[in-house]
């Protein structure tokens, strides 16, 4: 099985994010970068699926400037076999990313495309669905599993996505409003992952060394990347007025009743 997994370079969620004074973007100086956390979950799942279904291959793809090499390397250090960097400097909207990925899929012909449900920079949550539609594939968004992240299944690092015996279908449990749904996808298909699918592994030092030798191919977008959705302004969110500390429950209830009038 060949699995294509996407890895976006994003601002580290532990870095302080501030809006630029000219309201064009956020301040990027002093900010750390890393792979989108959802994409790490996608990589982990790809590796588990590969190892449970050998021979298989995991290809990590990122779209961005040369610096995104680092996030491909971290996927390779986790265990992915090779990387593809689609090189483009500057802003790309999620639609352009999806159309670039169509080209990569046409070239690589993977059986499964694993992505994060959302990139935690733009918080779009659209790329996987767009890609699935452009390819005419089935999709399962918000992939999860029934067992918790503290279950024996997770400790045993079992894949949460279940490949059918004929290797042509895949069962996916997904998080939806009001419960969990199970779908069966005909492969090839697009799956976007949610937080409860797995706990991604850390790369070991030997694997980080090994990853340095794994190949990363660099290609051009090959599509018109002019955005359908442009960012015209970025502002700081409205601040909440500072509140007060109350000494005890009685005072809290009195304030909620008399001041806030909510109980």
């Amino acid at each position: 099985m060949k699995i294509l997994v996407t890895v976006k370079r994003v601002e580290d969620y532990e870095s302080k994010i501030k809006v630029k004074p000219d309201n064009t973007w956020i301040v990027t100086e002093g900010v750390n970068y890393r792979a989108n956390p959802f994409d790490e979950i996608a990589v982990e799942e790809a590796l588990r699926l590969r190892d449970a279904n050998m021979p298989s291959e995991v290809v990590a793809v990122s779209i961005g400037s040369g610096t995104a090499q680092a996030e491909i390397r971290s996927a390779l250090a986790m265990g992915a076999d090779r990387g593809i960097l689609v090189k483009h400097d500057g802003f790309l909207d999620s639609d352009a990313v999806a159309r670039i990925l169509v080209k990569v899929v046409e070239k690589e012909k993977p059986d499964l495309i694993l992505m994060g449900k959302q990139a935690v920079d733009v918080d779009d949550n659209v790329c996987g669905q767009l890609l699935a539609e452009y390819l005419g594939y089935g999709q399962a968004t918000f992939a999860s599993k029934k067992e918790s992240l503290e279950s024996a299944e997770e400790k045993a690092k079992k894949p949460g996505l279940k490949l059918g015996a004929d290797k042509k279908t895949m069962q996916v449990v997904r998080e939806v409003d009001g419960g969990v749904e199970t779908l069966e996808l005909q492969l090839p298909a697009v799956v976007t992952v949610d937080l409860r699918l797995n706990i991604p592994r850390y790369a070991s030092l030997p694997n980080i060394m090994k990853a340095k030798k794994k190949p990363i191919e660099e290609i051009a977008p090959g599509v018109d990347v002019s955005p359908k959705v442009k960012v015209v302004k970025v502002e700081a969110p409205p601040a909440r007025a500072a509140g007060v500390k109350v000494p005890d429950v009685a005072t809290l209830v009195q304030k909620l009743h008399d001041e806030a009038k909510v109980v």
Partner: peptide, 14 residues
Amino acid sequence: AMWAGNAIATVEVT
């Protein structure tokens, strides 16, 4: 909202 609500963007659909 973007970046976990750390920024509010105005976007234009073209």
